[in-house]
Design a binder for these strands. Structure first.
Lengths: 192, 192
DNA sequence: GCTTGCATGTAAGAGGTTACATGATTCG
DNA sequence: CGAATCATGTAACCTCTTACATGCAAGC
């Protein structure tokens, strides 16, 4: 029940079309909230009929028309009310952790390869985050005196960077553990 | 599409009833996969009719009958096949990050209080994890030579501990940022 | 007598995923 | 000429959440 809120925040940061929102959910916002264009269009339509957002149809040359959305006053109130609700601990679902524990009942070799691939994905993501930080917040092109919106975007990005670093360190630990178990099994130590 | 797999892993680690599984999803497994008893009963029923698990009805004195589940060979194959599938990057949904970015359009005071509460929850969770680690893996009562299953449970727990520590450090960062913004606004610097 | 724990479920509704569908333009 | 990008949607399906429902036993 919070895709609405993610959309409201994104539209407050910068109004735009459903398509543009879908792009943002592939990038900046997508780092902490995933949504497909189907979801976004569906929710935008509902938000429009509830009066949370306003639409303006924009003709473009060379491109199809688009619907330009911006937050209406009732939408701002809804967001404000949500911001004042207590933060609930998030419900987690980590496939990888399940797989690791499942490795006790299977040959770990394949999982090792997959963890290495996964590590590479996270490594690329970290590089990507760091490049974004450089570009928008810490590099020479960045604003000398960031406003509140930018400061908050930056602290969220720092969270993403910390998460990726922590994950990479942990994946090293996971790999070492999987290698140890494989070696023990190869030695014929029946450790399971 | 992986609650099935989480249940298979949990039943391989230790067979038991739906109720017992629901308890485990409140604790050890629940740290990386949440599920309610309604979900678990529904999925167990489907898994039973698909032949993935076997049931034995157990009468107990003083307690209601229970259905004791254990993994059947086809279930083991399903798990094995799933373990060999590539690991997909998980789809994230962090309310808190949305709220933080939303704070640019609202008074941050309330959010500060909530982040402090959230910090406390994570602090308690860390304490809880560390106690569990001590009890099961690093304390004097822990097995001197852990088997593969225990080593893998431990590395997953270490992941949880690393996650909590990272989160707590980041929340300090978030609080400092929110305080800075509030102070700037009180000074009349219109930073938004 | 009330609450907690054990043990199992049904049902409605919200939310998310996947597949399908259209149509124009730009770039190689 | 085909692929990619812009731009919007529908429909079916699956999953998850929330509320409701039952019933016994033990302890306070």
């Amino acid at each position: 029940m919070a895709l609405e809120h993610a959309i409201l925040v994104s539209l407050l940061e910068k109004p735009g079309s459903g398509y543009e929102l879908a792009r943002r959910f592939d990038r900046s916002i997508g780092y902490f909230w995933t949504a497909t264009h189907q979801q976004i269009y569906r929710v935008l339509k509902r938000m429009e009929s509830d009066g949370w957002v306003e639409v303006r149809e924009v003709s473009q040359q060379g491109k199809p028309d688009k619907k330009h959305y911006s937050v209406a006053p009732p939408g701002r109130s809804v967001l404000s009310a949500w911001l004042h609700e207590p933060i609930e601990p998030e419900s987690v679902r980590h496939d990888l952790a399940v797989k690791i524990r499942g490795a006790a009942f299977d040959d770990p070799s394949d999982l090792i390869r997959q963890v290495e691939r996964y590590q590479q994905i996270h490594s690329e993501r970290l590089t990507h985050y760091l490049a974004g930080e450089q570009r928008d917040f810490t590099g020479p092109e960045a604003p000398a005196e960031p406003d509140a919106m930018q400061e908050l975007q930056h602290v969220v990005l720092r969270g993403g960077i910390a998460y990726e670093r922590m994950t990479l360190a942990w994946l090293d630990d996971v790999l070492a553990t999987l290698h140890r178990i494989r070696a023990a099994r190869a030695d014929g130590r029946p450790d399971c």
